[in-house]
Structure formats: structure tokens, C-alpha cells
Design a binder for these strands. Sequence first.
DNA 1: CATGAATGAGGTTTCATTCAT
DNA 2: TATGAATGAAACCTCATTCAT
Lengths: 212, 212, 212, 212
Amino acid sequence: MATRSSTALKPRKQPHQARSLVTVEAVFEATIQILLSDGCERITTTRVADRAGVSVGTLYQYYPNKQALLYAVLQRHLSRVGDTVETAARSVHHAPLAAMVAAIVDAFVRAKLQRLDEARALYCVANQLEAIEPVEGLRLRNCAAISAMLATAPGVRFDDLALTSYTFCAALVGPTRAILTGGAPPKMLCELPAQLESLCVGYLEHESKRKV
Amino acid sequence: MATRSSTALKPRKQPHQARSLVTVEAVFEATIQILLSDGCERITTTRVADRAGVSVGTLYQYYPNKQALLYAVLQRHLSRVGDTVETAARSVHHAPLAAMVAAIVDAFVRAKLQRLDEARALYCVANQLEAIEPVEGLRLRNCAAISAMLATAPGVRFDDLALTSYTFCAALVGPTRAILTGGAPPKMLCELPAQLESLCVGYLEHESKRKV
Amino acid sequence: MATRSSTALKPRKQPHQARSLVTVEAVFEATIQILLSDGCERITTTRVADRAGVSVGTLYQYYPNKQALLYAVLQRHLSRVGDTVETAARSVHHAPLAAMVAAIVDAFVRAKLQRLDEARALYCVANQLEAIEPVEGLRLRNCAAISAMLATAPGVRFDDLALTSYTFCAALVGPTRAILTGGAPPKMLCELPAQLESLCVGYLEHESKRKV
Amino acid sequence: MATRSSTALKPRKQPHQARSLVTVEAVFEATIQILLSDGCERITTTRVADRAGVSVGTLYQYYPNKQALLYAVLQRHLSRVGDTVETAARSVHHAPLAAMVAAIVDAFVRAKLQRLDEARALYCVANQLEAIEPVEGLRLRNCAAISAMLATAPGVRFDDLALTSYTFCAALVGPTRAILTGGAPPKMLCELPAQLESLCVGYLEHESKRKV
DNA sequence: CATGAATGAGGTTTCATTCAT
DNA sequence: TATGAATGAAACCTCATTCAT
């Protein structure tokens, strides 16, 4: 199952020396820039290397192939998002539902907007078949964090916590993607947190009421 | 902006004769199959032609280039979804909010699930930079239809109807994509309509209450 | 076992039209020329295509990869040698031992010298791991033909016919290769048939006497 | 002709110190292992260095380029074979023909089988255009040693001693290569010495009788 | 009109070799 | 002296597109 990703998509070597660290960081940055300017289809290892100011050979010292590079960049982005959401979720255990939602939405949107370019650039990468694993990984992390959080919500019971968390998660991720990806007016970006909150609070209240 | 799409992405000739219709249909079907089996990155005009049982030359008689073909396939899919949603929206003008949501969700999910393969295959295509136009087009249609519908909801006022419609729409599209694209368990597919309904009803009620 | 050769090394399509035939023949000829002038290590698909006066793309329409091309060229050469030897062997069933040897040696040497360049060029290719199969194939054909022939030799019995045929075969192939490949003086080329005959006749007589 | 080999293929420095000796030996061993496991086409200086446990840089301290390394490994192997055969030849001057053949065959086969891996691995290297020199060198040594030996054979005259030695040599080298290289059954390995003896004795007797 | 052979620019990847540390 | 990161030329191969038949 994980064959390809565990072998062919793994980075070749970790950058230990200072020089290497700089190189790898430059390659990451260049990848995102090219992704944004040329799109997912047009990105080439040569172009990434050029933009990063290194030779292709150097790029291939760290990543065995193009997919591995994209995978790594995506991975890092998703890890950060996962970290942020997890932390936020833990910080509002036992808080009222509205506070929970506010915290999660804020964390998620913040993580995405902080690196808006990265986020936008990577939606495209996340679509490739080879990249479902890390995306699913993030979903699992988020669902777990949210489940654990919701379980502590005072005075609320959810019939199917897993399902509710999944939908909560999808309600966060899906619309955000639609807005960042599509040609949404900048106004939407400002409204995004409020709308997501409304969406999620509305959903959770509706769900919790349903089972009384 | 629309330069490319208005010239280079247009089909070359409309298939009027019966034979042409069959050919075009075969090409469409082949495109979707290849998209599903080989992925968005691996699709080639030759492979599509082979699978469709025609020669590449013939394919190029109908579409000036690969993008135009993908564009056409995507366009058709999105048109159908748009039609379905529009019709549904019109049919529930003046109905209670819950009925509205039920109708829209049902229409949308039905349109997607009816052609599950097509839908799945095309998410990938929709990601290409050149394809934002038809995607945005669908969003506009949907928003318009939903706006018009919501405006007739009895006893409900929305402060910013455009914004609400937009979010409604995103709440429909986003999670659906996440579920069809990701490795969601089949169980989620069954629950999808109910969850979407809960999500949207929750949201709309929350929004409408906010302004009282 | 034959996985690679049965899939990855097979030609892509047979040249049916006249144009294709010319193309494929030109590619074959070019391959041999490059092999001779640049050596086995330096041969490139681009160089072959250039020399053949076609584009690389065309080359790849007929062969899925470089190995497959070399394989095909080698295969054709070996088939011809095999054919020649087989025919010769059949023509001297029941003849005296010396005549048998003369016929086989003549056939083998003739086949090699007729296409001296080809033969020289291909020894190098035959060394690649992927190419053992056709080489072994020729050995088997030759051994079989020789076995069948020797079995009809009047008044001679061999203790281990298979072994004797194998050695006979090796005595033919090995020294010929050594002479064509190495920097042997042209004089050796003239002497080759006589020496091979002497070698093989001597061997067979020695073997047949051994068991009396 | 010898331009390249006399300058570019020479080792850079002789390993005098103990440490260097160990390094060079490790590199040699690694080269042979890689040759066996990856084949002649896949061997790279980096892989050799890795396997040998040194850095590429170090490897290049001893050999100016890859060819020089392969050349050296081949050279050593061929020298050993040459030594063994020369010694054997000298030890049977004036002995009967059969004893001569037995001694030479035994020496040659022993030298090859003792380092079976090395022998197998290097056939491939010996094929490269740049490597004809040492191969020819071995042939010359062997022919000379055999010539000198045959000249002392009691009661036997060869019309063209050089030619006979050459063929003798080819009869030794050629079939051995065919058997070690090809997919010969292990049984053949055991039979090899006996068959070679029969081959060579048969040949020499046949040749010596011819001229009476 | 349909065909499919031919094209060749351009993408990915490797690897011999150098050189700053 | 040893190291191994960096280099970049050059190899392999693909595929959108054209055009003679």
C-alpha cells in the first residue's frame, strides 16, 4: 500500500550541514514559487533548480524524483496545519461549543492564510494520486483532535462522534479550498473565518439537537 | 484573461452527423476512463484516441488541442450539475428553508453520484489553471440559483444574501469534493446527503437567527 | 524469468507499410554503424536516430527503449547464424565426420564473415545481462542441430552426446569471438576456417576414440 | 593508439603506505562486487566508493577516472592468469604433448575458477574498446609461453608454431568465456577441464600429424 | 475525412568529476 | 589527505501535434 511512498517518495538524505539546509530551504521556496507562477502541470525540476539557484544535480541529491520533492513540500505544509489545529483543539477541551469552533476555525484559517501562497500552490499538488497519503494523514490527525475535543464539550452528546468530526473537518477544509483556489473576491477571504464559524456552529448545534 | 479559453479551447466543429456524435461520445467516455485509470498527469491524446477506437488525427478534427478536449469534458459535466441544481432551486421557491436545503442537496449529490466516475475523474482536471473559468461559471450559476431561491424563503431574511449563497455553495461543493476525492470510507458516501443537509440547514438557521 | 524480455524488450509495432520498413532497416543499419564507430558504451538513441536520418521519436515508435533496439538487432543476427548452421547441419546427416565438421565450420564462419561488421559490433551487445536469452537461444539451436547431426555419423559413438555438442559449439563460437573481437592480424581471419576445422575434427576424433 | 591508455588510464599513485594498500584493496573488491551485482553498465564511481567504505574523492586520489579503475582491476586479474599460465608452461618444457596440455589447461582453469566472481565480472569490462590492450597483452604472453613450450615437445613439429599457439590459446580462452559467461549448467563447470584438454590435445595431435 | 507515421522540443534523471572545507 | 556537496553535460524517453497518404 505504502510501497511507493515509503521508498520512491522518501527524501534521499537529510540536510545536516548548514550549507545543505540553505540549499533545501531554497529548493522548497522555489518549488512553491514555480507552482504559483507556472502551475502544477508546468513545474519542472530544472525550473525549480534554476529558481533556487542550484543545479538540477543538487536537487536530485536530496530528492530521488520530482514527486518526492512535491511530496516533501506538501508534507511540511500539512504537518504545520496539523500541528496548529491539534494545539488549538487541546487548548479548548471542556470549553463551550462556540469557543471550540472559534478556536479551531481560527487556528485552521490562520495556518492557511499565514502561508497563503504555499496553501494555494499546494492544493494542486494534493490532487495527484501519489499524494493522497499525506492528505489523508492530515484528515486523520484533524479528525482525531476534533473528536477528542468534542467529546469534552459540556452538555452536548453526539450520536456518531466520528461522523460528526469528519463532517466538521470537511466543512473546514472543503470551503476553504474552494475559496483559496477559485477566483473568490478578496472580500471572501476576510469573511472566511466568520462564515466557517457560522457553518460549523450551525452544524454542531443542529446535530446535537437532533438526538435529544 | 479569457483569451485562451475563448479561442484555443473551443471545440473545432460541432458534431452534427450521427457518426460524429458517436465518435465524440466515445472520445468523452475514453477520456474519463483514462483519467480514472492513469490519472490526470498520464493522460495523452494518443491513449484517449486508442481507447476510443479512433485515430489521433480524428481526435484533432474535433478538438484543436488536448486542453480543449479536457475543457469540453469538464464543461459538459459542470453544465449538467448546474442544470440539475438550477431546476431543483426553481422548484422550491417559497418552500420552507429545510425543504429548500433538502432539494438542493439532493439535486447536487444526485448529479455527482449518478456519474461518480466522471465526477471523481474531473476534480483533477478542474485543478488546472486553464480550467478555472468553467468552474467559476458553475459557482456563479449555483450562487445565482440559490440566491434567487433563498430570497423567497418565507419568514427569513439574510443580511448578505450573496455571501450566504456563496458559503452555502461552498459548503456543498467543498465537503463533497473532499469525500469523493479522498479515501473516504464508502459509509461516508451514504451519509453524505444527510450530513450536507445538516450542515446547510444548521448554517442557514444560524445565519438567519443572527440578524433578528 | 522472461518477464523483462517478453514485455519491455519486445518491439512496439511491426513495420507494415513500405515507409516503415525502410525506417526500421535504416535504424538497424545505423545501430550497427554506431556500435562499430563509437562502441557499446557510447551508443545513444539520439545518435542512432541521427545516423539513420530519422527522429528519436520515430525510433521509439518501434522500440520501447534502447535495450529493445539492441536486442532486436542482436536477435536478427543470431537468427541468421542459427538458420545457416541448422541448414548446414541437416545437409550432412550421415556424412563422414570430417565432412560434417567442414560443413558446420564453413557455415558458421561464412555467416559471421558475410556480415563481419555486424558480428563484430554485436559481440559487445551480447555481453549485456539483458541479452543472454537470445545468445543462449542460439546455443541451444546450434547444440540441437549438431547433436542431431553427430548422432548420424557413421561408425562413431559419443559417450555424452550433449556434452560433446556443447563443447563443439563452444569450440566454434569461442575462438571465433576471440579472433573477431581481439586485435588479431587479418591473416588469422583467412586461417580461421582451417584452424576451426582442425580444432573440431581433432576434438571429435579424440572423443570418439576415447570410448572404444 | 596507446595514447589514452598510457596516460589517462594509469593509476595516479602507487599505494605505498599500509593504509593506502587497504584502501585500494577495498576499492578493487568493491568494484568486482558492484560489477557482479549491478552489471557493467550500472557501475558508478560513487557506488564503488560507497561499497568500499571510502569517499569518491578518495577513489579519485588513486585513479584519475573510472576507466583507469576498471583498467587496473582487469589488469591485475589478467596478470595473475598470465603468471599462472607462464609458470605452468615453463614447468612442462620437454614433456610429452598430453602432459603439456594438461598442465596448461589446469593452470588456466584453476586461475579462472579460483576467482570465479572476478573472472565473470571482468569479461564485461574486457569488452570495452579501451580495454583491448591488456587483453591483447595477455594473449601475447600466453602465446609466447605456449610457443616456447610447444617448441620443446619431443618428436613433434608444427608447421606454423605461431598460428598453432594462437589457436591453442583461443581454444582455451574462447570456450571458457562462453561457459563462464553464458547460462551454462554447473555440470559444465566440472567438465570444463576435461573437455578443454580433449579439445586441445585433439587439435595438437591433428595438427602435428598433418605435416608428416 | 480518417489515418497513423513522423517530428523534435522538452522533461526527467544520472553520474563522472571537482573543489571548498 | 579525506570528504561529500555541488555541478551540469548528456542520456533516455514522452507526447502534443502535423501532414502525406
